[in-house]
Design a protein around this nucleic acid. Structure first.
Lengths: 97, 97
DNA sequence: CCTACATTTAGCCTGTTTGCTAAACGTGTT
DNA sequence: AACACGTTTAGCAAACAGGCTAAATGTAGG
């Protein structure tokens, strides 16, 4: 850990809440979680917006750590990082006890 | 309840996550919660940005239901709606069990 | 009523986000 | 090698968000 913990937490919260701010990204995240794992095509096909747009949403979710991605051949397999979602959300919920 | 519950939930999530997406708003929300309640001046004075900017953040937090406001004379007294914060966050955390 | 005070609204500018289409990339298949 | 397939990158327009300053609103007190 190269930075003080407090700083890192702030950055994590920043990127996670920013990622969750868009309805399409929340929907993608839930959808991937419920299916266990998906390739990008399965995800993009179930959403109205174009593939490149979905691809960008996926990239943001990966950057924030909410999705994990594994490259298999010419496909990308996405899976939800449920622990990270829960960590951030329950931590913030806990602040309001 | 004039709309189906599912629709309302989506709208709530939308406004709440949008409100939480900005660091200043998260900070304001936490700050108000820990102090119990504040008038707008106390809040604005502790943040770097100008009063009108803070005022807009406050309005967004109120619109999303995360802050409650009570007008007392010429002051506005804000208080955090902790239950609502927790409801939304724990509900979403629960989706990832 | 007139002034002072607490706060918001209006108007403006700038940077970011979101969406699109078209083109590129990398990997399997023939 | 050539092609097809899955996906991303580039580049652009439109919409949105966040910041500021200046002006307006509404209440309290002399």
């Amino acid at each position: 850990m190269s930075k003080p913990k407090g700083i890192k937490d702030v950055e994590v919260a920043d990127s996670v809440f920013a990622a969750l701010a868009h309805p399409a990204r929340r929907q993608i995240l839930l959808s991937v979680h419920y299916r266990g794992s998906c390739n990008a095509g399965e995800i993009a096909n179930r959403f109205e917006c174009s593939w490149p747009t979905t691809s960008r949403h996926l990239a943001m979710l990966v950057a924030s750590g909410l999705l994990d991605v594994e490259v298999v051949g010419r496909e990308r397999i996405y899976s939800a990082n449920a622990r990270r979602v829960q960590n951030v959300l329950t931590k913030w919920a806990g602040f309001f006890d």
